[in-house]
């Protein structure tokens, strides 16, 4: 444009200076756009990755109504497999906070906080409750129907708090599993029980003897004694033979003993010249003549 046909007035500036800037123009715009685009994409990715959409309220409603089938043969220990699948699939997407919300939501309905438990929650009154194991807040106890259910529910919570991921259909999902049920002790005859008790007691006696050696060995290992007890050093303690009664320290007798202050002799202001001179005579000796 600048190099226009004849009628354009001729510039007085040097041509080289004018010609230089134009090529810089086309590049910046795409670069800015690129940066903007890049930033937008990053934001979008962060949005997708970090900000998980909240769990819909319908899911909560569904999970508060579990277990669907209520039969006496089914309990929290043996939940129906359909419910287990539904529960685990839904809870995979939960944040720990949302799982706490679910427990609270179930408690509002009066049921046990563990989603697969059909029983109602406990309803102790007062603020604290004395248990065999100690004192607990009733608010904590009332969340569940029993301690077992509390354990089961918190087992899930721990897995959500510290998730381990597995790959499923190309996506990483939180690995969740139910707590393994402790084998219930089958009802035994009283005699068997006594026998068992005796056996355990016997075992205990045997254990006691071995326990001390075991303790010593573990202590040694902890201290870093590789060889164990065999590498111990014999230590004998001898008493000193001549033992006189202790004496208090005494100052040495000297002539100028009276000049000592706390064991230290003052040297300032006690040389012979100082007697002749007055205190204010501070002039140098050359002038003193």
């Amino acid at each position: 444009m600048s190099t226009a046909p004849a009628p354009a007035p001729r510039g007085i500036l040097k041509k080289a200076a004018v010609a230089a800037p134009p090529p810089a123009e086309p590049t910046p715009l795409p670069r800015e756009q690129q940066i903007t685009l890049h930033q937008a994409q990053q934001l979008q990715r962060r949005l997708e990755e970090e900000i998980k959409p909240p769990v819909p309220i319908e899911t909560f409603e569904r999970l508060t109504q579990l277990p669907r089938v209520r039969r006496p043969s089914l309990s929290a220990a043996r939940p129906p497999p359909d419910d287990v699948r539904e529960f685990l699939n839904a809870v995979q997407d939960f944040l720990p906070r949302e799982y706490s919300d679910l427990i609270e939501e179930r408690n509002c309905m009066g049921s046990c906080g563990y989603a697969l438990c059909p029983r109602p929650r406990r309803s102790y009154e007062g603020e604290y409750k004395i248990l065999k194991t100690g004192i607990a807040k009733t608010a904590d106890l009332n969340m569940w129907c029993s301690d077992e259910c509390a354990r089961r529910a918190l087992y899930i919570k721990v897995q959500l708090d510290n998730p381990s991921y597995i790959r499923k259909d190309g996506q990483m999902v939180v690995k969740l599993e139910l707590r393994e049920e402790e084998p219930k002790s089958s009802p035994q005859k009283p005699k068997d029980k006594v026998d068992e008790l005796a056996k355990t007691l016997e075992q205990l006696e045997v254990d006691k003897k071995t326990q001390t050696t075991k303790d010593a060995a573990s202590l040694a290992a902890e201290r870093g004694d590789v060889g164990g007890l065999a590498r111990q050093v014999e230590v004998t303690i001898h008493e000193k033979s001549d033992v006189a009664p202790a004496k208090a320290p005494e100052p040495e007798q000297e002539a100028d003993m009276h000049l000592f202050i706390e064991g230290h002799k003052m040297t300032f202001g006690i040389d012979k010249d100082s007697d002749e001179e007055s205190d204010d005579d501070y002039l140098p000796s050359t002038i003193r003549l």
Partner: peptide, 8 residues
């Protein structure tokens, strides 16, 4: 009387 849930 107890806390209010989704249903209510």
């Amino acid at each position: 009387k107890s806390s209010i849930g989704i249903g209510v």
